[in-house]
Design a protein around this nucleic acid. Structure first.
Lengths: 205, 205
DNA sequence: CATCCTATCTTTACATCGTAAAGATATAGG
DNA sequence: CCTATATCTTTACGATGTAAAGATAGGATG
């Protein structure tokens, strides 16, 4: 009769799985050390042994997120029939499918900046973006960095505005039935036509 | 001898001022109802009477932030000698000068979405951006929205990446002495030259 | 095989937080 | 003057992160 063995065996993985369940089901705010322990069926102080503190658990989870993120970016852009901006589309798709996880990944205040696992996974995933220009370089010029940043900031900004609910206002005044994806395509088309509107405030506003 | 009058007189304003002090000094994580009460010199339960709950206080603070944000955007773009992208520069400048406040303003999970004060201030400030294209419209086409979104997402993404510390990695491989502002200018120049790099992952990454 | 060491997990404890409820106090209106 | 009401305090409760000490099991060592 093996009720609840004192030694879990793979508690660290179990806690990570439990944490991800909570993240998807109840959101980032509900993801606490004690909630993860409950979900995994262990005492509330068990996680501390494996992750040190809350930021440790969150950082491991974010690291896992960056690994999956990087993999999806890669497969989206390296497909034989991949189109221009497919990386950006994959960027938004990942955030839409994993909103709480994406928020966690880019919320530096809840993560441990010294966590090696997180640092490596993040460099791996975001390094892909840095290599997005035609000629990946170790010592890029400021112009090359501007180019990389342009594409990154454009899709990251769109994604954050979407996650924060800031696009709902635009969708309300948009033509009937306009979707978020349609807005994305319109934005990308605008970028390709070189018609990005600077944030210039109308005089009569 | 007027030690601590029972009735503060202007406690709501006092609490907002105290909250902003904490926000600037200790960051968003340290801004709690009890901390604001301590800073204002009242009992820990006093704020509840004026703001209902924590999201109420934070929403009022965010509303005030949006008012100032809108004012700075306006003055930056309506100056007689204003240049292209000056709105974007003001956008980043505000976030750099008020990092915690900016985070709060765009962190929908900590705000009360029904707060009228917040709703109005946000519409006022962000409506300016929606009127950024040459011809402000009530029923814009998807193409017009794409144009507006392009400029907004570009500077918002840059700003968020900067606040989350994500640009530090780029600055490390950038030419010696490159500043965040230099990166911004490089990105804007890239956008004007229509050379935004799509997030296309290098094959060898 | 017996023993001890150590990693793993539990229990207990404490400070802090948000929030609700009830009590105290001052202001305003009749 | 006197009372109704808004304002603020006190008290209380459950939840959280985290530290510290205790219990347990597994493995190494003799």
């Amino acid at each position: 009769m093996k009720t609840t063995p004192y030694h879990h065996g793979a508690l660290k993985e179990g806690l990570l799985a439990a944490a991800e369940t909570i993240l998807q089901r109840d959101g980032l705010a509900a993801l606490t050390l004690r909630a993860a322990a409950r979900e995994a069926g262990v005492s509330h102080a068990a996680p501390a042994h494996h992750f040190g503190d809350l930021s440790g658990l969150l950082s491991e989870l974010a690291a896992e997120g960056f690994r999956r993120f990087g993999a999806q970016l890669k497969s989206a852009t390296q497909a034989t029939d991949s189109r221009r901006w497919d990386g950006a589309r994959a960027y938004l798709a990942f955030a839409t499918e994993n909103p709480a996880l994406f928020q966690l990944m880019f919320r530096s205040d809840r993560l441990d900046p010294t966590n090696p696992s997180l640092q490596e996974a993040r460099m791996q995933a975001l390094g892909l973006l840095a290599g997005a220009s035609e000629t990946p370089v170790d010592h890029p010029t400021v112009e090359q960095l501007g180019k990389i940043l342009g594409g990154w900031a454009l899709i990251h900004g769109f994604t954050m505005l979407q996650l924060d609910g800031r696009l709902k206002g635009l969708l309300r005044i948009a033509p009937e039935g306009t979707t978020t994806d349609a807005l994305l395509e319109a934005m990308l088309a605008t970028a390709d036509r070189n018609e990005l509107a600077p944030a210039k405030v109308a005089r009569d506003a």
